[in-house]
Nucleic acid binder design. Sequence first.
DNA 1: TTATATATGATAATGGTTATCAAACAAGTG
DNA 2: CACTTGTTTGATAACCATTATCATATATAA
Lengths: 141, 141
Amino acid sequence: MKTIYQKIDQSEYRMTPQRSVVLQVMLENQGQHLNAEDVLAKARSKSPSIGIATVYRTLEKLAAIGVLYKNMFEGGSYRYELSIGDEHQHHHLICLSCGSITEVEDDLLHILEERLENNGFQVVDHELKFYGYCPECRVDK
Amino acid sequence: MKTIYQKIDQSEYRMTPQRSVVLQVMLENQGQHLNAEDVLAKARSKSPSIGIATVYRTLEKLAAIGVLYKNMFEGGSYRYELSIGDEHQHHHLICLSCGSITEVEDDLLHILEERLENNGFQVVDHELKFYGYCPECRVDK
DNA sequence: TTATATATGATAATGGTTATCAAACAAGTG
DNA sequence: CACTTGTTTGATAACCATTATCATATATAA
């Protein structure tokens, strides 16, 4: 299981002040799902002259080497989150009431993937979203 | 289990020639996932003067009353498919080689939903995509 | 230093989708 | 039937997240 820094070292990724700021923002907001504008705002509080293009380029690069995961959300826009370890985290429980986004437990996914593999479909990636109400917000009890 | 026509009758959806053409296109391409441009092209072969705005409006309306399902795909654009019966069909196996899109069996989903409900999360909708290789395209055997 | 390559920020371009608006059409009313 | 009122249509402008362009700045190599 590679660390973030190992992933960066093993890529031809040159660390610049701007990239460092973007990475820092993502580290400080671990577990959150930020879009490019969010990242720009937070990055500008550290480095006011950073531009949106650099933010996009950096997020894209960090996603390419597996440091971030790029998620597609409703409305057709993307959000980024820190990818810890080798496990994918692109499966979410999205609360329609409070908007909280949490992760599906991995063991549930493995059951599903096993079953799909048994049916002949070779899974290489997935993207799951469950919309509903989290335990705090559910209305039926 | 409502039919398409029951859903339309029970809404305040007025059937116009243009809407009829769009619906016809969706019926003739059942099981396929069409984007607005696809629908426009097919609709224009029946009714050349139809405009893209009408296609978007009609797809949106048909999705709102449950006749179509609106799926978000990679690149942040939407595709529409006919929604047969009450069962949702928004879970897909997407082959990275041939691009075929097939459905996940419902019983697999029910297992997953049950487990999530047991954990306190009330599921009202979902969106699943598995990327990989279909039985015809898989490379590991 | 000098030459070469890469990164940056401003901004223009892109592309799918939505909003606007005048004209066409439909439905109801007396 | 006119007439009024409301809805739908198609063309096109606007929108907005993302990407491409390009001159300048910065880093690396020779």
